[in-house]
Simulated assay, not measured.
Amino acid sequence: MKALQLRTLTKRPSVPSASPIRKMLRVWQLYVLIALPLLYIVVFKYIPMYGAQIAFKDFIVTKGVWGSDWAGLKHFDRFIHSYEFGKIMRNTLVLNFYNLLAGFPFPLMLALSLNYVRIRWFKKTVQMVTYAPHFISTVVMVGMMFELLNPRNGLVNNILQAFGLDAINFMGNPDLFQSIYVWSGVWQSAGFNCIIFLAALSSIDPSLHEAAVVDGASQRQRVWHIDLPGILPVAIILLILNMGSMLDVGYEKVLLMQNPLNTRTSEVIDTYVYKVGLVSQAMNYSYSAAIGLFKSVIGFILILTVNQIARKANQTSLW
């Protein structure tokens, strides 16, 4: 009884918790840092959703968004039943899957290789050489490709002719378009994309490698049993994000590489929208918006599906 009374007397009075505003003021610097990115997302990502409703309308500029007549799913139906739908969907999916299969492993392998390089100057030189192409603009990149693959005086065809082979019109061959697009992209982005995997490798506990070396593990075994499992969560997250943009090729490079000879395999959703919805005299903004919304919905469904599969398989997911 006395002990209970003593604890009651010595018990500290409860301190009222600080209000949310006071908590925010204590770390106001963090909120200032996040304010600009948050403002960017609101202005350029959320506010434009207001205009997505024109996908369900026959939009006329003079009438405005609210004044235009509702059309329901007419533009979606037109796109799905269009003559070009099968071709552009096939080209878009093939190009994206090809790009994913070819481009995803190379940054990973480059990061693993650089992680075991012990010669400092050589490692920095390789990093600089592989990072540099990322900063070349798309227009310059395509211009370099045209010069190298020129059927008359391009470097590649000069080498082929030096060995007695015939010159090849690379940019005019529809069967070669996808390979040229993908492998030029791998060369341009592999070095920069490996930065993420290098950061993941640097977070692995060095004591794991020390213990493996003491146990006699070879370098290949350390890569297989320590490095790969350590960066697997990051790789899965990147894969999920890439699946979300499966229908979003980005029309700049495709449009610059495109010509009447390779349209059979180079026409993708983005170039189709640019030509039919914006460049044509009809100026069909509603049709373009419907195709863009169609891409967004499919991408959202793919992210949800792949995220669910990854969470059940490896317990690693975005949410």
Rank of each mutant, 00 (worst) to 15 (best):
M1E: 03
T8H: 13
R12A: 13
P16L: 02
S17D: 15
S17C: 02
A18H: 02
S19V: 04
I21P: 05
L25D: 08
V27A: 11
V32A: 15
I34H: 06
L38M: 15
I54W: 03
I54N: 13
A55P: 14
K57Y: 12
S68A: 02
D69H: 10
R78S: 12
S82A: 13
E84M: 11
E84D: 14
G86Y: 00
A102T: 00
G103I: 00
G103Y: 01
P107S: 03
A111K: 08
W121S: 15
V126N: 13
H134N: 14
S137W: 14
V140L: 11
V142F: 01
G143V: 02
G143D: 03
I159N: 08
L160Q: 00
F163E: 09
N169L: 03
M171Y: 07
M171W: 05
N173L: 03
V182L: 05
G185I: 00
F197P: 07
I204E: 10
D215L: 11
G216P: 13
Q219V: 01
I226H: 05
D227S: 01
P229A: 06
P233L: 08
M243W: 11
G244E: 15
L247Y: 03
D248V: 07
G250Y: 10
Y251K: 06
Q258M: 10
T263W: 06
R264G: 07
V273Q: 13
S280D: 15
Q281F: 08
N284T: 04
G292E: 12
Q308F: 09
